[in-house]
Simulated assay, not measured.
Amino acid sequence: MNILPTIDAAKDELVAIFEDLHAHPEIGFTETRTSAIVADKLKSYGVDEVHTGFGGTGVVGLVHGKGGGTRRIGLRADMDALPIDETSNLAYSSKNEGVMHACGHDGHTTMLLGAAKHLCETRDFDGTAVLIFQPAEEGLGGARRMLEEGLFEQFPCDEIYGMHNWPSGQPHTVGVCKGEAMAGAAFFDIHVQGKGSHAARPSDSKDALMIAASLAAEMNTILARNIPAQEVCVLSVTQLHAGAAYNVVPDTATLAGTIRYFKDEIYALAVERMQRLCDGFAVAHDVEIQLDLRNVFDVLRNDATLSDAYIEAATDIVGRDNIIQDLQPVTGSEDFSDMLKVVPGAYCVVGHAGTTALHNPGFVLDKAILPVGASIMARVVERRLAQG
């Protein structure tokens, strides 16, 4: 393991930052405390420019290298937490009820701060590092808001790199999947407007609950009978809400869930079939059914050449034996994909000793990966903006 010396010397500081962020998690677009800490740290490290309030609560910092080059490399970390009650029993567990860093974004923020500290102290590169601390990654559109506010017009980048922790039980491994690496995703809500009645006379009703339950079951046929078997698509109904009394047949019901996909035409096919099922059930049961869909994540596509560049930077830190070359695509989603649609780049995962899944109330991020991730981020800047 070849942790960069500046970052190795700052390990205790990085752990302190991480534990503080973990104890004070904030939901997307409310990361005011987090962004204030980030901005203060960047200024204390000597970052040349620190811009706050970008995309709501985002922070962007610029670090100029020793040379006079004009190329710019972007590094991005997310900052938001999830609406989950923590059960990890850590000494630094969340102090904010109902909110937890169950995806490790506190670690990602800490890693980028560590990279910033190293880049400011050494400046052993020719060009500019653009440090992007993004709010609201968890399905709230933080990346899209930053883009809409002119992120890359105000802070242009030639390449951009992102990173995520990976609770694989394989510490310090690094993997990159070239091409389509993470699924696109949409969230859906289906509203059934029926007719209520006394539960003793269900024949007077148009039972929205039963219609919704049948519709939820029928959604499974889209994957089984419409999506080609060789394609990857996930359609999950995750919520069904109806009724509030034992003796009332409800007049309304709502289904909700998500679609994950790697090809736009497969997504379009799934949506078409969902709409036809909703329309058919509405006719069959003489009710109104409305399908509301919203795309929240695009397919994340890693540039092949820049994936190799990321792998080489990671190899400098973790060694060739800890590189996973054949990482497979995953059906999870990540809004870094929106940035990659505008600027070429790559996204890697860094394995750690934890094995509890992401988005779990018992998730624990292995703090040993903080200097690893920070070193990889800093190293990719030094490699891609090598002097001379």
Rank of each mutant, 00 (worst) to 15 (best):
Thr87Glu: 15
Asp12Tyr: 00
Met182Pro: 11
Trp166His: 14
Asp335Phe: 05
Glu288Ile: 02
Ile160Ala: 08
Ala253Tyr: 07
Gly55His: 09
Val192Leu: 10
Glu138Gln: 03
Val283His: 07
Asn302Phe: 02
Gly354Tyr: 09
Ala16Pro: 02
Asp8Leu: 13
Arg276Asn: 11
Asn220Thr: 09
Gly141Glu: 07
Ala346Asp: 02
Glu97Val: 09
Gly345Cys: 06
Gly74Ala: 06
Met163Val: 13
Asn89Thr: 12
Ala224Phe: 00
Thr52Cys: 06
Pro371Ala: 05
Phe18Gly: 11
Gln387Trp: 00
Phe363Gln: 06
Ser44Lys: 14
Lys206Asp: 03
Glu382Met: 11
Asp292Gly: 03
Arg320Gln: 15
Glu86Pro: 12
Met163Thr: 10
Val249Pro: 04
Met210Trp: 12
Leu255His: 05
Asp204Ala: 14
Leu21Glu: 10
Arg201Ala: 09
Gly114Arg: 15
Ser214Leu: 14
Ile222Thr: 15
Val38Ala: 08
Asp20Arg: 15
Val381Ala: 02
Gly184Ile: 01
Met1Leu: 12
Arg276Gln: 15
Gly46Leu: 06
Phe297Asn: 03
His198Ala: 08
Arg383Cys: 04
Asp189Cys: 02
Asp124Gln: 12
Glu288Ala: 13
Met79Gly: 02
Thr356Ala: 06
Phe54Leu: 13
Val176Tyr: 11
Pro202Gly: 13
Cys348Phe: 10
Met79His: 07
Thr238Gly: 13
Met377Asp: 09
Ile376Asn: 06
Val248Asp: 00
Gly107Pro: 02
Val330Cys: 05
Asn89Glu: 12
Pro344Arg: 03
Asp85Glu: 14
Phe187Trp: 01
Ile227Lys: 12
Ile317Tyr: 11
Ile7Lys: 04
Asp124Phe: 00
Val287Arg: 01
Tyr45Gly: 13
Gly46Val: 05
Asn96Tyr: 07
His101Ala: 05
Glu153Thr: 07
Arg71Tyr: 02
Ser307Ala: 10
Val350Ile: 15
Leu370Asn: 13
Val60Pro: 02
Asp126Lys: 04
Leu4Asn: 11
Arg145Gln: 14
Gly354Arg: 09
Ser205Thr: 09
Gly196Cys: 03
Phe155Arg: 10
Thr356Ile: 13
Ile259Ala: 01
Ala116Lys: 01
Leu21Gln: 11
Ala136Lys: 13
Gly68Phe: 13
Gln239Lys: 15
Glu148Ala: 15
Gly67Asn: 04
Ser337Met: 09
Gly114Thr: 10
Ser93Asp: 14
Thr238Asp: 02
Gly184Thr: 03
Ala39Tyr: 10
Glu31Ala: 03
Gly98Pro: 13
Val174Asp: 06
Ala116Asp: 03
Cys177Tyr: 02
Ala9Phe: 00
